[in-house]
Design a binder for these strands. Sequence first.
DNA 1: AGATACAACCTTGTCAACAATCATAGGAGA
DNA 2: TCTCCTATGATTGTTGACAAGGTTGTATCT
Lengths: 227, 227
Amino acid sequence: MTAQQAFQPIKQESTPTLIANQLRKFIANGTLAPGSQLVEMDIAGELGVSRGPVREAIQRLAQEGLVESIRNKGVFVREFGPDDLRDIYQVRTSLEKGASEILLAGDHAAAGEELLVCVERMDEARKADDLEAISEADLAFHERLVALAASPRLSRMHATLLTETRICLNRLEGSYEDESARVAEHRGIAEAIRDGEQALAMKRLDAHKDDALVRLVPAEHPTGQAF
Amino acid sequence: MTAQQAFQPIKQESTPTLIANQLRKFIANGTLAPGSQLVEMDIAGELGVSRGPVREAIQRLAQEGLVESIRNKGVFVREFGPDDLRDIYQVRTSLEKGASEILLAGDHAAAGEELLVCVERMDEARKADDLEAISEADLAFHERLVALAASPRLSRMHATLLTETRICLNRLEGSYEDESARVAEHRGIAEAIRDGEQALAMKRLDAHKDDALVRLVPAEHPTGQAF
DNA sequence: AGATACAACCTTGTCAACAATCATAGGAGA
DNA sequence: TCTCCTATGATTGTTGACAAGGTTGTATCT
């Protein structure tokens, strides 16, 4: 061991946390399909643990809204409808506006520059024609926007909505016809924040939300079709 | 049994739900003091149940942010500091602004009238010199504002913050020097919504938040003093 | 007196078993 | 054939016991 190396304190994650993280991933990527039941015994058997921590993990997901727990009946992966999608994006935008206001009240130039770095990453993914990376860079932009506000509650709530957003995006097909429009929208938001233009930032966040909803909500069945 | 009476379906609340509700109340009213440890065995003994459902109830409160769960060490009633109070009010205001925008985009006149009913209740409590009722009517106004937006996620998130707000208010002494100013602030918000004045409503919600923080955050220790 | 090691105690984390609930299938009776 | 009742199976909800981790107290050594 040299002077530059040192042992690091061990931080062991709890079993329910590890299980919840796996379940969250499987729900988001569709391995656990909408409407399907999460059976404690089955999951416990596959993971080689008892039902207790599985139960705990599942209850966490229920509280996050990713699954629906019905007493004495079971736990089911939640299905989303167009109303859910609207709600998710609506509330996300409220939180992102709140974060933007905090940034605008502080060093908005530095915040804007940092968000523009996220936009560049998004642009690189666009140039590489990597749709999955674009989508993830898109969400990373929003996550960073809220994280920069340094508000624990905003970040926690926003994280829940981002998970739900990922689930919806994985289940739907919508995308931008031209990915450079997507990049431009994010750049517009970052620039408004950098330049301290509050009203413009708010307006662009709203427009970004409206644009996403037009793309994602199936036009022929605006109130139907769970996914 | 007459024609107007009928048996109602029985909806049995789960044991963890009942326990969590009790614990939430005791945390809010100070029976369970900030920093104190929630011991599963003790609570289970007092309630005459096993540790399992107590554990589940406690994990719910942890996810709501009312208690802090440290692996292998225990669960402690969360202490709040001035930063927490600012965060709570900041995020609440973001959610309330989001709700207001939804109301303003719909039948804002009806929504405003309904909020004014809440204001009248608050005024009645002021006339009765009942400080506790004023405080509860105040929170009821905000709850109603968000409920009227009919956004499940807004309501769920806002409810968590209202619980936290109650806890902070119970632990702090601040109040309005003149309760009629408090009533007037709420009336101002309701009227702006009723009249469809978005910018004014946003401005008034911000001012309401700033006013509350001035009253509640101890001026001599803006960054200290957990409660 | 201070530091170290070990034992005891308290509490959390997990496990396996039993109790309770719900849904389904099969059999009996009208 | 249809309806009702009972049994069975699957799963959830809870319990009590054991395993694991952390803290405190006591004894011993320097």
